[in-house]
Deep mutational scan, measured.
Amino acid sequence: MDSLVVLVLCLSCLLLLSLWRQSSGRGKLPPGPTPLPVIGNILQIGIKDISKSLTNLSKVYGPVFTLYFGLKPIVVLHGYEAVKEALIDLGEEFSGRGIFPLAERANRGFGIVFSNGKKWKEIRRFSLMTLRNFGMGKRSIEDRVQEEARCLVEELRKTKASPCDPTFILGCAPCNVICSIIFHKRFDYKDQQFLNLMEKLNENIKILSSPWIQICNNFSPIIDYFPGTHNKLLKNVAFMKSYILEKVKEHQESMDMNNPQDFIDCFLMKMEKEKHNQPSEFTIESLENTAVDLFGAGTETTSTTLRYALLLLLKHPEVTAKVQEEIERVIGRNRSPCMQDRSHMPYTDAVVHEVQRYIDLLPTSLPHAVTCDIKFRNYLIPKGTTILISLTSVLHDNKEFPNPEMFDPHHFLDEGGNFKKSKYFMPFSAGKRICVGEALAGMELFLFLTSILQNFNLKSLVDPKNLDTTPVVNGFASVPPFYQLCFIPV
């Protein structure tokens, strides 16, 4: 009986604490739906499609509103004006990374994606500088992407125009580009180590996009005490870190300090320079996690976009025909596509942009946080508050993009057929937390897609009208449904 009384008292205290925290903070924060004790607004949000729920709530509470995930307040920004004001106009104040408990377990605050403060700034600055020195957006990395595009075309030829699921092959190409940047090595598509790495990356994007992960991140005790797919994700990350550590040891034994070959060499050189400046942010643990982040951000996002792009091109054969006509006119058949071609191919450029806009790969991006107490639109948001960005509300804005739910390359073309930029184009987020590999991803999408369409016609196994382009999961990332196609050599 005594234990029951204690339990009831504990629960009562928890409920009172929950109510007090919510009521004391709500006077400062933007308005929002009334949260339930302990669980907050979790029942009012469709976990399978958070973005749709945010759109519905914005119609009631406006472009800036507050939700509670458990006891934790989260300020939501919906629509271009609110997102721009926060991420661009007040970029420094909104540059923090929001709480992501599962990532905390995986990387302990290291790396480039989930770190904060001085650690994040130094690692991000170093990573950007190193990638630029190796030619991100310049010639040397373009050579690597072109080489991988040629290998991709050869792998597709091996399908002999038979029906195939493109998931694996389209994942190999961007993964190999990242391998060449980090390890100075590309792998054969049949290499077992490479296959294991690909498998872990593919599993992780599916797990991260599941409703279960949303629950884990908002009720963090689940991570330590409950079984579930989150444990598989943590094991996959541990596998990748151990693999990278092996490569780091190989580099330490063979590195030429006067001739760095890749990202690992550059990081080890930085560690050597910083060894007298303790404590340094440049450690082996930081290198492991930064490399894992580059793999995660640079492989599955690009391969998922490529997979979605081919599905949309199957669905819209008239678009595919126009792209192939432009390829034939500008590039021809006797040389590989290059980035200089893009400025002469406005329709193809528009298609690449429209694919990214339409699929809305990361509907709410990753959570941000404010780095200080900030007054925002007459609300006071306390330091450390998590900020949720609705990228969907920007990419699918119906004023900027008429009929935003329709796939239409003319969203990025003017009346004369010239490519038209849009400030609403934010597939990689915006501001200080914009994806480090934005330029690389854009290069890969253009070169891989043009190389495929230069060499193959795409054949659907069903009537294009019957192809479903609805994402199968739409949590962290929008993942396309399973499909097969035939690559018919031109």
Rank of each mutant, 00 (worst) to 15 (best):
F401K: 00
S209T: 14
R124T: 05
S3I: 14
S254M: 12
E405G: 11
I434R: 15
A477E: 09
N236H: 02
G332S: 08
N403H: 12
S336E: 14
E354C: 02
E328T: 14
V237N: 08
P73S: 03
S51F: 10
K232I: 07
N258E: 13
K121P: 04
I374N: 03
A86G: 12
Q44L: 10
G96M: 10
L54C: 11
N474Q: 14
R21I: 14
L395N: 13
T34S: 12
L311Q: 02
F226C: 10
N455M: 06
P489H: 01
R124P: 00
T302W: 00
Y347C: 02
E199S: 11
F407N: 00
Q278S: 12
P402Y: 07
K241C: 03
K59D: 10
C266F: 14
P382D: 04
V64P: 02
L485M: 11
I488K: 08
R21P: 13
N378D: 14
L90G: 14
I47E: 11
T385L: 03
G79K: 04
P37T: 03
S220G: 12
V462N: 07
R333S: 10
I50K: 09
I434S: 15
G109R: 06
I74G: 02
Q484I: 02
A321F: 09
H396V: 06
T304D: 05
N133Y: 07
N56H: 13
L485H: 00
V75R: 00
P260A: 07
L458N: 00
I359M: 08
N259T: 09
F487R: 00
G137C: 11
V237H: 09
F219L: 14
K432N: 07
T470S: 12
E81G: 09
T229F: 13
F412M: 04
K235N: 11
S209Y: 07
D397S: 11
T301V: 04
V490C: 11
D188K: 05
P37D: 01
K206S: 09
N277G: 09
G46R: 11
F65I: 04
V145Y: 00
V75F: 02
F376N: 04
C10L: 12
N217L: 08
C486R: 14
M129G: 13
F65V: 03
P163S: 04
R97Q: 01
T167V: 03
I99L: 13
R139T: 12
A173Q: 00
Y225C: 10
V113F: 10
C338D: 09
N418I: 06
T305P: 01
L9A: 12
E326P: 01
F401Y: 10
L445C: 08
L268D: 02
R124W: 03
L152D: 00
C172Y: 04
G475Y: 06
D341G: 01
G442H: 15
I141S: 02
P471C: 06
L314V: 09
T304M: 08
C266A: 14
Q356E: 07
L467M: 06
S343P: 15
P163G: 03
N107T: 15
Y347N: 01
K247P: 02
L287W: 02
Y347W: 10
K52L: 09
F376R: 03
V436T: 12
P33C: 01
T34G: 06
T304I: 11
F446I: 01
I331V: 11
G137E: 09
V490E: 04
A430S: 13
I387Y: 02
N334E: 14
H411M: 02
Y61L: 02
P382G: 04
Y80N: 08
K322M: 09
K247V: 07
C435G: 00
G111K: 00
P30L: 02
A430I: 12
P464D: 05
L306T: 03
M240D: 00
K206W: 04
V177R: 00
S343C: 14
V319R: 01
L312R: 01
V319N: 05
P31D: 07
Q340K: 11
I169C: 02
L29A: 04
C172L: 06
S162A: 15
F412T: 01
I99T: 14
K84L: 07
D349A: 14
R21F: 12
H368V: 03
E400G: 10
S209R: 15
T159L: 12
D373N: 08
D191E: 06
N474L: 05
L9D: 07
L208P: 03
N466F: 13
L361Y: 03
Q340E: 10
H230D: 04
R150T: 08
L9F: 12
N277D: 11
E81I: 06
E147M: 07
K121N: 11
M129V: 12
F194S: 02
I207N: 04
T469G: 04
H410L: 08
S24I: 15
T470N: 11
L11D: 02
V6S: 12
Q278T: 13
E400K: 09
K232V: 07
E142K: 01
M443F: 04
P166S: 00
H411T: 01
F267N: 02
D262C: 15
M426S: 07
P63E: 12
V8C: 15
I488S: 09
I374R: 07
S286C: 15
P163W: 05
V330L: 06
L366C: 05
M443A: 06
K375G: 06
S53N: 14
E142S: 04
D191C: 04
Y347G: 01
L440M: 06
R333G: 09
S53M: 07
S303D: 01
L268H: 04
K59H: 09
Q278H: 11
G437C: 03
S254I: 10
P166H: 00
S390L: 07
R186W: 00
N418E: 11
M426V: 13
C216I: 14
Q324T: 07
K459L: 06
E438N: 13
M129N: 12
M269D: 11
D468H: 06
L54M: 12
L395S: 08
E92A: 11
I141P: 03
P63K: 05
P31K: 08
T348S: 08
K383A: 13
L90I: 12
G79I: 00
A439M: 13
T66L: 04
D89M: 09
T302K: 00
K273F: 07
K72H: 12
F482Y: 14
N236I: 03
S53K: 15
V8A: 14
D397Y: 08
D408L: 04
E415D: 13
W120I: 04
I112C: 15
Q340F: 09
I141T: 04
V145D: 02
K158E: 09
R144F: 08
K28P: 10
K206H: 07
P427Y: 02
G135S: 10
G137I: 09
Y243P: 02
E285Q: 09
F428I: 04
K48H: 11
L67S: 02
R307M: 00
A86E: 03
N133M: 11
K138Y: 12
Q22E: 11
H276T: 11
S23D: 11
N41C: 05
M255S: 11
K270Y: 07
L366I: 11
E285D: 09
Q356S: 10
R335N: 07
P402L: 11
L314G: 03
I205H: 07
L197H: 02
H184N: 15
M198V: 07
E274S: 09
F263T: 04
N418T: 08
L445S: 09
I123S: 15
P260V: 05
R342I: 10
T301D: 00
F428C: 04
H78Q: 11
S115P: 10
G117V: 05
A369Y: 15
L380P: 04
A321Q: 12
T283P: 05
K160G: 12
Y225S: 08
L128F: 09
L362M: 08
K432S: 08
M271K: 07
V355T: 10
L388P: 00
F183S: 03
T290G: 09
C338F: 06
I374M: 13
L197V: 04
K421T: 09
S343H: 14
V370S: 13
H368D: 01
T301H: 02
L458P: 03
V319E: 06
G27A: 13
K459D: 05
G91I: 03
F476M: 15
P481I: 01
N334I: 12
T302H: 01
F226L: 15
F134Y: 12
M271Y: 06
P471I: 03
E199F: 07
N202A: 11
